[in-house]
Amino acid sequence: MLDTIVIPVLKIAVLLNAVLVAVTFMVLLERKVIAWAQSRLGPMRVGPYGVLQAIADPIKLLVKEDIRPVRADPMLFTLAPILSLVPALVVFAVVPFGGDELFYVTDINVGLLFIISVTSIGVYGIILAGWASNSKYPLLASLRASAQLISYEIAVTMTLVSVILTAGTLSMVGIVEAQQQSGLWFGFVQPVAFVLVFIGGLAETNRAPFDLPEAEQELTGGFHTEYSGMRFALFFLAEYANIIVISAVVTILFWGGWLRPFPNVEALAFLDLIPGWIWFFAKMFVFLYIFIWIRATLPRYRYDQLMRLGWKVLIPVAIGNIVLTGVVKVLL
């Protein structure tokens, strides 16, 4: 009873809250980092150096008036933000933050596939939001979004195959353990795959330079143009939760998850004093930072250029990478 129900439920409760709090602070981090990149200060008023902005923002969104356009589809308009957020949160069930059983909810033998498939459900939120709003800009945005997500999902999934080939398992914990055994993080074994997954991750989370579905300069905010208040906040939460997921996945697949640097070098054993989950979060933070950094730096792709990049560059490279990995694997 305790093992099968109470502890998992507690873990899930803690995880959900941690993720949602992390997301609010991720927003603050983004505002701060972009502000520094642009020689501004960012939020400074709420709390010291604006740290309480992370709490003020959700409160503001929660108490805002809930506006639904008259000609929107009531059922889907309500459902869309939920469909967007839930998959983003469900994914965390198989993300191991540490090697100990305490640090993950479950370790299923198809963990990586689970993440891919559940995130692929998230696209419904965006498509339905665009359609249910009964408005032209959101509709255009949701068309862009669905084409973009499907294309990049193919590229990312193809790339992950080569990682799976290297690791020989689909379990998230298993992949990190495989890196421990080989003594090399897969980022060094599969550098091409790492770059592809990161680019694909940027595109799948609708982040700059692939943020076409929410390009405010072109589509006045994109698929969530008609959304406000808490419904909008749900989209917002989903986007940032997805960024955290991608960063976590990249950390696990390519940079050894909770492992310290050079996990098999005895001389560096003193690094084990730092617990694994701190290593994990430190690595993840680097990728979160890169996400923001890219947003502050790059202009936006155009729709056709984005599709060309996905289909004519990423997917062929991903397929080539699979073939290469297979050949090397057989030869060794």
Partner: peptide, 16 residues
Amino acid sequence: HAMDIGAMTVLLYAFR
């Protein structure tokens, strides 16, 4: 112009 094309940092630099 840069902002329209998505490069938001240039806006702040130029306004500075």
